[in-house]
Design a protein around this nucleic acid. Structure first.
Length: 582
DNA sequence: GCCGTTTTCGGCCCGACTGTTTTCAGTCG
């Protein structure tokens, strides 16, 4: 039997949490399973490997009982308690429980009283007017339910998430417009947008103003606003023409810090922060910090003030995911996170030779304008498969062109490179003699995504072991909105990269951000030098590096752990080909 | 079910909203 992935284990714990909830278990037990599921999902190493090593209880939220369940999952592929409860509750009941406005209590009552065990049965009961007869239910619930079920039928996606690169520029534009208003004092973006996650649900803005009504009016009148859904003394909710919800809250200056902290989240971070505070006799909310001893609530004008009141240093929003940041803050071990200004070169971009829009010279000039010290030109290789392939002969000619360009450009080092395809068997589609003549080789998978995990992982590791492969590009192949990652064991990939001195890229293209923050954190911890690359297909695309930086920061990466923060001579020596030569 | 700068037992985040209620339960973020 194959080893369960962290995602599969997390799903098993979530399912068991749902089943226990239906079974009426004390809520804290249910919460414990959900917490454990998150800890597993966020773990940067294989949880099953930890289990076999007897070290899994080192993960926060995993104790003796869950350790036993992990052993069962490993040995039998299932958890006995889950099997028992699945026999007790039909699967359709869990779907009922997850409907908006419904939960375990309501689902259970419907099951016990009306034998509702599926969405179809639920609809029948609602249409027959049976639901309003139940205690705690009424006509309103029944009406809302029928509406929810109708949405469900139309494949109604509940509040689609928006890619960060679409939401953030809009949020920044709105925040900028508000800041420019004379009534504005402080204006900040909050929510998952401020934490720079892959996607956001909506745009949250927190502000203070000398004249709140005037600032709220300013928002309502912005050209990009399509409609106003709610508006009052304390804020407004509007929707943009592009369909994004925008929430503006105007608050008193002396509690701006509390509100910004509260609405920045994330959920797990805030829960942990509040639990931690309770143990010290403090209670945190968006309104302030209440001290049990004095009965007084402290309001904070700044976010720093909130953390300081708790005896903690300010924590960067990108770290606020409940992944150990409180413990690190307490010990004074928060990382100095990598910043855009630390980056000295880009090791992955395309030109008109393959599918890019600008020439190598234009790309070099754009990189120079960004202050880069080096740039690798990495067009697609011989079998790219989309009509943009670069033959071996063309690449040989390109090497000469780059040499000539380098002679004419003093301030930047150009690298003659390639983004070479990793073929299904793990071999590369240029001869070794040609790869040896290049300054830089990044290898990526662009075809045959459907193979099984072991085969795909072996394929990738064969490329990693190739002496002329300096780095692996977008290692899981995911496209956030359109394509899941192919099956690959990143634990093995990272181990192979660490062993061979192969770098792994964080591809900054905002629909990729691949590797993701979990893998990037694991890679750095394993000693892999991480790259942050734009994969630019035009000079303008260099701007997208900020999204790679965001992923790196969410992965807790320091400049030291990112290879392309180094000056050129140091970076040059870090390449596998340089090490091999010495 | 987890966990300990009070605790190995007895706690376990905070507030808003909705719809049902006549003081609250359930759900949500």
């Amino acid at each position: 039997m194959s080893t369960k992935t962290n995602a599969e284990i997390a799903a098993a714990f979530d399912e068991l949490g749902d089943l226990y909830e239906l079974d009426g278990a004390v809520s804290y037990r249910v919460i414990a399973y959900r917490t454990a599921a998150k800890a597993v999902r966020d773990a940067s190493v294989s949880v099953m490997a930890l289990t076999r090593d007897g070290r899994v209880t080192e993960l926060p939220g995993i104790g003796k009982t869950l350790e036993e369940k992990l052993h069962a999952l490993d040995e039998t592929g299932d958890i006995p308690a889950a099997q028992k409860l699945r026999a007790k509750f039909p699967a359709g009941l869990i779907a009922v429980m997850h409907l908006p406005g419904f939960g375990p209590k309501r689902a259970r009552l419907l099951y016990d009283e009306l034998q509702v065990d599926s969405l179809e049965k639920l609809r029948e009961a609602a249409e027959a007017g049976q639901i309003r007869t139940l205690r705690g239910f009424g006509a309103k619930v029944e009406e809302n339910l029928l509406r929810v079920l109708a949405d469900h039928d139309e494949g109604g996606s509940p509040a689609p998430r928006i890619l960060l690169s679409r939401a953030l520029p809009v949020a920044e534009q709105i925040a900028g417009a508000l800041r420019d208003h004379p009534a504005a004092d402080r204006v900040e973006i909050a929510g998952s947008l401020r934490r720079l996650g892959d996607t956001a649900k909506d745009i949250d803005i927190i502000a203070t103003a000398s004249d709140p009504a005037a600032l709220i009016d300013r928002l309502r009148e912005l050209e990009l606003v399509e409609s106003v859904h709610a508006s009052g003394d304390a804020g407004a909710r509007v929707v943009t023409h592009s369909g994004m919800k925008v929430d503006l809250k105007v608050v008193a200056p002396d509690q701006f810090g509390n509100v910004l902290q509260h609405f920045t989240g994330g959920k797990a971070h805030n829960v942990q922060l509040r639990e931690w505070a309770v143990r010290r006799g403090l209670h945190i909310s968006e309104y302030g910090v209440l001290d049990d001893e004095t009965g007084e609530t402290t309001r904070c004008a700044t976010e720093e003030g909130v953390y300081e009141r708790l005896g903690l240093p300010w924590i960067a929003p990108e770290l606020r995911e409940g992944r150990g940041e409180l413990e690190a803050a307490l010990k004074g071990e928060l990382p100095r996170l990598v910043e855009l200004s630390d980056i000295r070169g880009d090791l992955h971009c395309h030109t008109t030779l393959s599918d890019g829009r600008q020439t190598a010279e234009q790309m070099a000039e754009a990189a120079l304008a960004r202050g880069y010290e080096y740039l690798a030109i990495t067009d697609h290789s011989a079998s790219h498969g989309f009509g943009d392939h670069v033959t071996a002969e063309a690449l040989e000619q390109r090497i000469e062109e780059i040499a000539a360009l380098n002679a004419s450009l003093d301030a930047i080092q150009l690298l003659a490179g390639t983004e070479v395809n990793i073929l299904p068997d793990g071999s590369l589609d240029y001869p070794d003699e040609l790869l040896a003549r290049l300054d830089w080789v990044i290898a990526s998978v662009h075809t045959s995504f459907g193979m099984d995990e072991a085969t795909m992982t072996d394929r990738m590791i064969r490329a990693i072991e190739h002496p002329y492969v300096d780095a692996i590009g977008h290692p899981t192949g995911r496209k956030i909105e359109t394509r899941p990652p192919y099956a690959i064991d990143m634990t093995r990939v990272i181990a192979a990269a660490a062993r061979t001195g192969t770098m792994i890229e964080i591809n900054a293209a905002p629909d990729r951000r691949d590797m993701n923050e979990i893998h990037a954190r694991a890679a750095a911890a394993a000693g892999v030098k991480v790259l942050i690359d734009s994969d630019a297909h035009s000079a303008r695309n260099f701007e997208l590096l900020r999204y790679g930086i965001a992923t790196a920061r969410r992965a807790w990466l320091t400049p030291e752990q990112v290879a392309n923060t180094r000056p050129w001579p140091e970076f040059a020596a870090l390449r596998k080909r340089s090490k091999g030569a010495q």
